[in-house]
Computed example of a mutant assay.
Amino acid sequence: MAALALQRLAELRVAQRNEAWARSQGAKEYGQKHYPLFFVLHPSWMLFTLLEGRRREESVRPLALSALLLAQPLRYWVIRSLGRYWNTRILIVPGGKRVRRGPFRWLRHPNYAVVALEIAAAPLAVRADRAALAYTVLNAALLLLIRIPAEEAALREYAHQAD
């Protein structure tokens, strides 16, 4: 979990740089009210995975660990495909085009698919089954009921304004 936490902190720095660039281009932000939920969900997921996993004396589950490791290049493929547009907020840059390369050729929201895989796989790898179940459900609710609809609404509004 320490490596995953360090990875997330490094990614936040990239996201902040990209956010600053987007705002300098006149980006409009959407979904600000739900944004703090991510800063509760992700650190608590890591903490509860660590706490529950430490109590287990069984070995790591190789299949879940493999899934977690597989998610990492997928995650960076998403970040690379979005380039400067990748950040942790919903920012629409005027004149920007919707990214349709990389994994976006097949999925509308590949980053969320990768995060869902990580949120399930990391706790399962260390036998933190309750954390895997609880955070998979919480993440799915946040994404499906709040975040993705907010993102889609922002994209529709932007497309409507661009017409």
Rank of each mutant, 00 (worst) to 15 (best):
M1I: 07
M1V: 09
M1N: 04
A2S: 05
A3Q: 04
L4C: 06
A5M: 04
E11R: 14
E11N: 13
L12V: 10
R17Q: 15
R17M: 09
R17H: 13
A20N: 11
S24M: 12
Q25M: 15
G26A: 12
A27I: 08
K28L: 12
K28N: 04
K28T: 14
E29V: 03
G31V: 00
Q32R: 10
K33R: 09
H34T: 06
H34N: 05
Y35N: 02
Y35H: 10
F38S: 11
F38W: 05
L41K: 09
P43M: 09
P43A: 11
M46K: 03
T49M: 08
T49Y: 07
L51K: 02
L51E: 05
L51A: 13
E52M: 02
R54V: 01
R56M: 03
E58K: 06
E58G: 13
S59W: 03
V60M: 12
V60I: 15
R61S: 14
L63S: 12
A64S: 15
A64M: 06
L65Q: 09
L65M: 14
L65D: 08
S66R: 09
A67H: 03
L69G: 10
L70R: 06
A71G: 14
A71T: 12
A71S: 15
P73Y: 09
L74C: 15
R75S: 14
R75T: 13
R75A: 13
Y76M: 09
W77F: 06
R80N: 09
L82Y: 04
G83L: 07
G83Q: 08
N87Q: 12
T88S: 14
R89P: 02
R89A: 05
R89H: 09
I90F: 01
L91V: 05
V93F: 03
V93A: 05
P94Q: 05
P94F: 01
G96T: 01
K97T: 11
R98I: 01
R100K: 10
R100S: 11
R101H: 04
R101T: 14
G102C: 05
P103L: 09
F104K: 03
R105H: 02
W106L: 14
L107P: 03
L107W: 07
L107G: 06
H109G: 11
H109Q: 14
P110M: 14
P110T: 10
N111K: 10
Y112D: 11
Y112V: 10
Y112W: 09
V114E: 07
A116L: 13
L117R: 01
L117C: 14
L117H: 03
I119Q: 04
I119M: 10
P123M: 13
P123S: 13
L124N: 12
R127Q: 15
A131Q: 08
A132G: 11
L133P: 00
T136L: 15
A140Y: 08
L144W: 08
L144D: 05
I146D: 06
I146T: 04
R147A: 07
R147E: 06
R147Q: 03
P149N: 01
E152H: 00
A153D: 04
L155D: 01
L155R: 01
E157W: 00
E157F: 00
A162P: 00
